[in-house]
Structure formats: structure tokens, C-alpha cells
Amino acid sequence: MTIETTSSRAPYLGYGLGLRVEHYEALLEQPGNVQWLEIVSENYLVPGGRPLVWLERFRERFPLVMHGVSMSIGGTDPLDDDYLARLAALARHIEPAWVSDHLCWTGVQGINLHDLMPLPYTEEALAHVVERVTRVQDVLGRRILLENVSSYISFADSQLTEWQFLAAVAERADCLILLDINNIYVSACNHGFSPLDYLDGIPAQRVQQFHLAGHEHGGPLIIDTHDAPVANAVWDLYIEAVKRYGHVSTMIERDDHIPPLAELMTELDHARTLAAPWLQRAA
């Protein structure tokens, strides 16, 4: 199967939100400043019923992108062919602007931890992930985006930094990058690296989407909870990312303590305001 490998990025979608059930009706009635939506792919890998009916309604009104949590691209169990087939069928049906998942593993030996487990940054892991990304892109017939995850552990055997590893995966597998600004901040705090070094190490031409989200402080570590407004330090890092990468489709991801839609729209406006001066310069 031929995969489009143009160096240009996919269309710039502007500012969007992660689609959540709590906002279904409000989003259709008053979409406000929400320009696009990211769906969690797994929520719509169902035979029928209400989820797919809602999805059709949103598809008519918004550009959609698909974001998965179960690909386990770094896992050592075989890739789940059934999952990939369902994912490919959904993508064919809703024609998202792009499909993404996480640079992580989620389980092994048939057991799923339902978590985004970090990988050791080794040559062995790099070769393993690159081979699997290539296979996934072949099945889907398109390049995928991989997202950096928040992490709390690090491995004695790691030979590369996280950003070196992510950049190498993207280059070798010819995939794209979903950069989660909050995750960079969380992991930088937890592991003591510079988030600016991280941004500087990522190839700008492969960055296609930003995530913004909230976190919480849990003891000595910062936990990526997606249950709070975006923190000031993450907004600061977002500006640094915009300076480096320019126009990148940006969205806010809230998974818990879901606030009224208007509150997230206010955060989206804040993102716009922060980015505007730098995007004007870039233009």
C-alpha cells in the first residue's frame, strides 16, 4: 500500500477540543470558537447505537481527528490485528484529518494495564517501534501521529533522551508527532530535564498537533491527570512551542472533572491570544 510521504504538514485546523459526552449537545448547539474535534477512537469502535449516531452529527459539523489509547506501539505482544482492522474501518468511514496514538506500551502477555507505559530509550526499543509503526501505517494507509506520554519511571538502560528517541522514531518510521505540551512539562519536572531542550530536539516539520491539559502535584511527582485547567507553566511552554513550530493544530484535552463547555472555550481563547503574536511573526 502506498503511503503519502510529502514533507508538508496536514492542514492546519486551528483550535479544537477533545470530544466528551458531557459536551455533545452544547457543542452542536453553540460550537463557538471550537474549530475541530479529537475523538477517542476506542469509544467509537462499537457495532452501533447512540455513539455512532452522535459521531455522524459531529462529522457533519467539524473536522475530526482520531486519537487512540490502545495501539501499544511499543508493546512486545503482536499487534492486535482485530483492533487495527476496526481502527482502519472507522478511519475509512469518518475520514479524519489524521490518526494518532501514543509512544508507549499498554500491556504484555495478553494483559492490558490500560496505561501509557513508557519505553526504555534504547536502540532495541527504537528498532522495535519503528518496525511496528511501519506496519501500522501500512494497514491504515496513512502516516500516523505519535504522542509523547507523561512518565514517572526511567530506565537504567536508556541510551537516548526521550526527545532523541521520539525524533528518531518519527524520522526512521516516517511518522508524525503529536506533541503534548503538558506531558513534556510533567516529565521534565519528574525526571529533571529541560523542557526547552526537549522542544529544541524535536524536528519541527513532523509536529502536526499540540495537546494542552492540566496536571496535579502528587507528593514528589507531578501527575498527568487531565482533570484541571492548563497550568501557567504549561502555557509558558506552549508559547515556546509556538515560537519553534508555528501553526500547529492545538487542542485542550480534559478527561475528568469535565467543566462546562464555556470554560474550555475560554481556555481555547487564551491559547489563541498567547499564540497570536508569534504566529503573526511567522506569517
Binding site: V108, M117, A125, D157
Partner: peptide, 10 residues
């Protein structure tokens, strides 16, 4: 090595 590591972590 990667598989062993993942099994031990799991």
C-alpha cells in the same frame, strides 16, 4: 530484553 522488561514491569 524489551519483552523481559515489560513482563517484569507488568
Amino acid at each position: 530484553t524489551l519483552q523481559t522488561l515489560q513482563q517484569r514491569l507488568l
